[in-house]
Amino acid sequence: MLSAARITLTDAEPAKLKISGESVSKMYRSKNKQLLALDRVSFQVFENDFVSFVGPSGCGKSTLLRILAGLEEASDGTVLVSGRTIEGPGADRGMVFQSYTLFPWLTVRENIEFGMTLKNVPLFEKRAVSDRFMELVGLTKFAKSFPKELSGGMKQRVAIARALAANPEVLLMDEPFGALDPQTKEAMQTMLVDIWQKEKTTIVFITHDIEEAVFLSERVYVMDPNPGRIRAEIAIPEDIKRHPDGRDAEPFLKLKKQIVSMIGHHHD
């Protein structure tokens, strides 16, 4: 079985639990149908962790993320973020959506500052933070541009900067690169890993792209569809993460293949 042992960080202090899900279920009810989107899903995300949920459509991974964001409620089970139950959406859990969700009437800078504007952060402080994040995502030159002037990749970079600038404890990402072309996608992935290391954020990432999940994550939860269940939890070994050949490395490809076959033979 591939469901590997719990992650053990080599650091002396034990990893702090950031998010814990305990047999989380989600049932959608309509007039004459019930749909079990999530079936007793349990998972852990630690501080500074990068965890991906990967699986085919219908495996409930987006539902799971929306529950974490507080945009939907679990029908059963408990989810704790920093030890607290989730009461609706909040600034402690930033989110990046797959579709472009920049506020079109705000410039790049104003978009990034949005969370701070809501909190009436003083202007000089806002400027300092937005300057830093625009530089982080390489869009300093576009501070005054409106979203309509940006490419898809640039929009998502602003969306990431906007989420981070609100200083969340967790960054939730729902297939943020799903609509991008392959080259842009790879560049964004590299940038995201870079940001994650620099900013020491905790990231929960949803994707159906197995390569993306393996490349980005510390740990990957592989999910099955109908009903959505967790099939395996895989800690990405250090030798894959540090390999000079990156995604062309032998162990990377091998692990990717393993996950593909795992997802493949369950659903027909």
């Binding site: 959506f97 969700t101 506020f103 809501l118």
Partner: peptide, 17 residues
Amino acid sequence: SGELLQVSYTLGATRRQ
């Protein structure tokens, strides 16, 4: 767009905001 509203919630917007 409902997603614009949802994004604003995840950035800490109150209902009024």
